[in-house]
Design a protein around this nucleic acid. Structure first.
Lengths: 203, 203, 203, 203
DNA sequence: GATGAATGAGCTTTCATTCAT
DNA sequence: GATGAATGAAAGCTCATTCAT
């Protein structure tokens, strides 16, 4: 069978569509099967159960995102620029793949079950990109040494994530993605940079 | 009516417990009924359906919170202090009523249905407390006039909310609530204050 | 309490309305209570259960009808005229009290349970009015002695009853009640009269 | 598909049994499923809901009956004989398939909803067989031209239907089916035939 | 007698999952 | 591997009936 008709990923992509449309709990396996153009039973050849589709979807998609973000960040040397790149990437996802963004935003965090189980996995890896940057900035003397990377990473991620909800929920949001990413980044940089670093313009 | 029993609020309180424990979709009406020590059918004397319990719960509880936060903020005159008060209140909720915090965090935002319907209601009213403060700070010349209140409110709320998830999901979080609230507030204040205001100590 | 506010009959009248509107099984006790302007519980002071309302309704209303029909028939001496009077009375009920007619037609005969239990009661008494007339006609030599009164009574009743369904179900029926009653009666009289009696005109 | 099992008709047959036994409203889906030896859910693969089973049952069974009756009638040339054939067929159904007869008698006509919806369908087609015969008889000069076929059809059907109720409700009815069919037919023929046609014996 | 809040058994319907083909 | 008909457990919701006031 041809690589391109890969059932596994067809099902994942279908699930993203269906979960985004109706939510995880309201989604029916048969909906996903229909969207993926496979039989209901076929899904169980690739996934253990409905929840497993959600987990796999998350694992695989966030892995791709992590790779992309890390690649983009590696091109930068200035931690301040890195933070901006992260912000832009995070918000751009809504534009590039709204359905995936919606699932990651809404459905994945719906149950503490999911989040508790996933505390030490890809999700953490993703958010830790921020704390690594912050740490780097502190070592370079750019970020104040008294800010706590573990708090900043959550605050920064939370800020961006809340913004991305705006685009998911609002048909015509009042801000552009780029300007918002920059604005939030700028506020945080003002917030965590040393006095000297703050004076050095970003771009 | 058996006046003293107040079934309505007993059911709401039971629902908070049950939704926090198992999530909205996995919660059974009979669980809520058992927790509230009423019959299953009694619930339908006070609520139209399961979803209506969630909506009512949200409406009522967030209204209480709004009142409390606004009262606390009114005692302050310095917008910087106001922002700190908001942060502290928001995070304190986890401590005072973990189950309610969990429901508001996890269950309410699970479905775009809910969020879309509720875009213009209490939830907005709550988050708008922040933008009102920011605006006030700008008028007083304390906050930079180039920061956008509509972005700051979401960023600040998102940052705090993401932190509160830490307490909900983590048995022994590495940070105290007070210190975290202050830390996040401090970062944002650094981020949005004018140079002069930043020098003026907060506490 | 005043005789006129008699709860018992208020409930019966309300039940006729509600049963006619929604059918026995779909009717709710609370609907009847609301229609009768009494509390739900009050109904159980006058009736044992929902089914008992149906039985009582039937008993009482058909008793009234029997009295009326018998009175009208007693005024006649010619069995042929008696049959016509019965037909007219039966069909007129639809006109005078459509809701009651509908309940008697549709709801009462819905369950064999009801009909089996009621084989030897008022319903039989009502239909037997016909066989008594037929018998009388035979004794007077007007009706053929080879027709079986037990069959004629059912056939005649069934014929009329089926016609009355037409008025219940059809907004604008193509026949008038009087003409139909006469027409059916005439056919039956032709069918059961002796040759001599047939020649004697009825009216 | 397990070709040989034909679940659809197994369910219909089971429904006839169960509806006849307990009535439509008291029948549980699980009873029908058990009787049909399928799972509860299987029923919903073939029918939309409980009411749909009743409708389908009616459609299919009455269609079969119509075909049979029309075939039998086509063999006759004398309208008088045709009417007798119809009567015999109608009453014979009770003997051949008592449960089906009971459902058609009791359950189908229980709700005006059903009858109103079905005024212009198979049921009408069935009863119209009678009026077609009457018309034919009038054209042949056998039946009086002043009898109204639309009234006769209902009267004749009602008469037969009421008789069939006797067999459904009574364990040991005092009349045989054949003799009753003939008797009723004879009365109607006497009632509607012209004087000449009446004198010509039927059989 | 009258009320109507409370009860809880009961039933239709859904849908994740299985498995014979 | 792929299918989709069949399964049956599970749960939201209704409403006849009760009973404390």
């Amino acid at each position: 069978m041809r690589r391109t008709s890969d059932k596994h990923s067809k099902i994942i992509q279908a699930a993203i569509k269906v979960f985004a449309r109706t939510g995880f709990f309201n989604a029916r396996i048969s909906d996903i099967a229909k969207e993926a153009k496979v039989a209901d039973g076929t899904i169980y050849l690739y996934f253990n159960n409905k929840y497993d589709i959600l987990l796999s979807l998350f694992e695989e998609e966030i892995s791709k995102i992590i790779v992309q973000v890390k690649q983009a960040i590696e091109k930068e040397t200035d931690p301040r620029k890195m933070l901006e790149t992260f912000a832009l990437h995070h918000l751009k996802l809504v534009e590039k793949n709204e359905e995936l963004a919606e699932v990651l935003q809404m459905e994945l965090r719906q149950s503490n079950k999911f989040m508790k189980e996933y505390r030490n996995t890809r999700f953490v890896e993703y958010v830790d990109i921020i704390s690594v940057i912050v740490h780097k900035g502190q070592e370079m003397g750019m970020f104040r040494s008294d800010v706590m990377p573990g708090v900043v990473k959550r605050a920064y991620f939370g800020a961006l994530d809340e913004m991305s909800r705006l685009w998911i929920l609002t048909p015509n949001p009042p801000y552009s993605i780029e300007e918002t990413a920059k604005h939030i980044c700028e506020i945080f940089l003002h917030g965590i940079c040393t006095d000297e670093a703050r004076k050095g313009a970003l771009s």
